[in-house]
């Protein structure tokens, strides 16, 4: 993963699960989760995923003349919405919708599942939802 792809990833993940009173995806370790998964179950999909990140960057350049990670949240979300629906402005080598679904689902997996898998640092999502707040361990 190039530094640019890493920055695109960080910005995109924080749109998928933004920070508010509780950590956003990146601070909660979703990047760690993905790094582990790309060495494991998701290894066959890594090239696909990176092509999707390149696609996000290309959309940002085409539409706003700037890096995806440099855009404000409104413009970033606008790009993500068009990727989600497949209405992209540039030529994609992969299906934008499939990339988007993979990005959203794996972000949720990292954010909401066991901290041992790399994400959900400090059980942030389990505290936020109440899963670990109530009842026996």
């Amino acid at each position: 993963m190039t530094e640019l792809q890493r920055q695109t990833l960080r910005a995109a993940l924080d749109c998928v699960i933004p920070p508010d009173d509780f950590l956003g995806a990146w601070e909660a370790g979703v990047g760690n989760y993905l790094a582990l998964q790309f060495e494991g179950d998701l290894a066959p999909q890594m090239t696909f995923y990176l092509a999707g990140l390149d696609g996000l960057e290309a959309e940002a350049i085409a539409r706003f003349g700037n890096h995806f990670f440099s855009l404000g949240p409104e413009d970033q979300n606008s790009i993500l919405q068009s990727v989600e629906s497949g209405a992209v402005n540039t030529s994609w080598t992969i299906s934008p919708q499939k990339f988007f679904k993979l990005m959203v689902e794996t972000a949720a997996e990292g954010y909401y599942s066991n901290p041992e898998q790399g994400g959900n640092i400090g059980e942030v999502s389990w505290t936020m939802t109440g899963f670990s707040k109530y009842g026996p361990v």
């Binding site: 933004p18 972000a107 909401y112 939802t129 899963f131």
Partner: peptide
């Protein structure tokens, strides 16, 4: 578990991402 809930139990008209989802 919350991830099971996320996959299984969200309203169909709720966006799957963004602040509203979180």
């Amino acid at each position: 578990p919350p991830i099971d809930f996320w996959y299984d139990s969200l309203p169909p008209d709720l966006p799957r991402w963004g602040l509203r989802n979180k």
